[in-house]
Design a protein around this nucleic acid. Sequence first.
DNA 1: CCGTCACCTGCATCCGTATTCAAAGGGCGC
DNA 2: GCGCCCTTTGAATACGGATGCAGGTGACGG
Lengths: 370, 370
Amino acid sequence: MGDTSVAAGIEDATGDPRRRPLTARQLAALIGVSQSAVSRAFTPGSSISDDLRQRIRHSAREFGYQPNAIASMLTTRRTNIVGIVVSSMRNPFYPVLIESLTQGLQKVGLQSLLFNITPGANVEEQLFAIRSYNVDAVVVIGATVLSDKDLAWATEGRKSVILNRRTTEDTTTICCDETAGVRAVVDHFHTLGRKRIGYVAGLSKTGVGMERHTAFVTRLAELGLRLAGTAGYNDYSYPAGWRGALDLIPARPDAIFFASDILALGGSDALRLEGGVRIPEDIAVAGFDDITMASWPSYALTTYRQPIQQLVDQTVTRIISSAESGGRHVSIPGELVIRASTTGQATSSPEIGHGGAWTAGSDGHISGRP
Amino acid sequence: MGDTSVAAGIEDATGDPRRRPLTARQLAALIGVSQSAVSRAFTPGSSISDDLRQRIRHSAREFGYQPNAIASMLTTRRTNIVGIVVSSMRNPFYPVLIESLTQGLQKVGLQSLLFNITPGANVEEQLFAIRSYNVDAVVVIGATVLSDKDLAWATEGRKSVILNRRTTEDTTTICCDETAGVRAVVDHFHTLGRKRIGYVAGLSKTGVGMERHTAFVTRLAELGLRLAGTAGYNDYSYPAGWRGALDLIPARPDAIFFASDILALGGSDALRLEGGVRIPEDIAVAGFDDITMASWPSYALTTYRQPIQQLVDQTVTRIISSAESGGRHVSIPGELVIRASTTGQATSSPEIGHGGAWTAGSDGHISGRP
DNA sequence: CCGTCACCTGCATCCGTATTCAAAGGGCGC
DNA sequence: GCGCCCTTTGAATACGGATGCAGGTGACGG
């Protein structure tokens, strides 16, 4: 349980007795006030005069005092830490989501403790860790590795938000509006006159994959379109998309919807490089997520953009609000992004986000260029 | 300093008085032993009989007791938390590195607290946080946003490892052997008979970019090859690679070395889609890192693979060892991965890592396929 | 049979801060 | 001038577990 730590062998970094940081009591003694005063100087909303607070904070800077967050966690029973549970960052959608989430949390003074739950590994140990670290909230991203039971145990007694995953447990889940997204894509195919539509799926279990698939089949039926076929390899990855697309070729689809962009990228390459298929002339292709690469001119992938910022905002809001933790299912609409993989219209060159340009002569010297 | 927390407004998740978890003292009372005994039952290597330990741990499971990690941090002065400082996860190399690192740390019982330092943002606040959370060690990944001074302050008094970045401070840095890598690539170009080689750089300051550039120019000179030109946009990104590659076309290179894979991908697309260049017939292309996408058949990018697992292993080793924190520069060789972007030889289809295959009929029902 | 010693166990104390409570000080109205 | 109340401050205690120290037990040798 708690003693599996090989790091019990972690040792002190400095040979000499590491100078312990100043404590509130010491600082208080130095400047002739009480420890309480020091504590109050760093506690927003506490009863202390502006004058004293300024004086103490000034001395704190001078002597290098910083409140010990660990100690205050013990008394306040709040860690200001959010546990982020994730099972893989291989799908490019996740790093961006995690980055946004981390930054969103930072903005409100929360830190992110990352729990990487890998399939075969020490799942139980990690779940124990989540609990013993007393995180204020848990955000689960995908992580279909975890059973609903595991999930419930990990989030028991604390706020939690589940992103991009379904669960039968009574917790808040926040997702992009999968159904609307899938419909938008299918409708787009329909508008373009495509009749035989194939589907390449990702995971089939607790993820949002099932929903996308259901919505897809439903919408197809509503529009009277033909499901050319379905393929999937229980994995959201480029190779899975590659093989899934090839599997569908015999069914002669004129459009393929991939359950996620990363699948679509693999599928597109397979179609073009191995299948000899032209996109979108022979087969139109669309994905879901709008990862960075979807916008690369080499793919120009039509896709449904997940509203990352809003997903994050909602997540942060629910974490810092006092709302009961009971289950709420938030569904946020995304946005259909139409690119050449369905329309064939060329896309413009990518734009550089930031940073100045510079070039250098053949002598290798690099010089600035405004 | 410590009071900027908007999350001070974080509120209790449950309306009813949240049942506090069992404490060691309570458990001790329940089973008629002392609190010390409970503590020892969960402290490896402490003086306690096997019998008692088993009994206590058994009751702990029964009553749902778990040691409070926060409380033990206070007395042991060890958090078993490693701060991971990162500035962006946009370059696909980083998510994989972070994932590996997190898992490597987990294996030895360490958790990862993620600090996302963004350019314009609350850098100072984050640095304060790193210190006040008393992390046992700090791992800085890239993060050229931070000045050497910031770095020193954040890592002061604790173990630290800097990955993929240079610093004048006296800390351990662990990098792939940039020089060997660049040489391997240049030599490869040379072997292929390429004579006019261009270079597309990334960041120019504290990153490893300068080293790669220096090594490149040096090796070129040694082999008597011609530097066709250098371009760069102070950014490791696809668009930067795109524009950098286009900048070089007038110089008529027959090979281009990109300072990182993500640049190379953008560059390759620019060359093919906008420049009308054939790869590798007209221009051979190589990158650095070996990110996942480099192996995609659409790019089949020759590159120098960073030894991620070894970088992680070294990092973890240094963190859990008692070695003095003084500066050591570890340089680990990677591996040249030759693909079609230089040789033109076709690459095989991508392989699916895991997960079973399944397909479905046109009725939308998904069935397993072994 | 008693002394010695190794091994366990409990008691008391400490980690560094938040917070309750009481007391001190100041301002104000009557 | 006095009482009252509000603000500000310090003393004391709690948070939950780790650990030094001393006491207790049993084994073993002499």
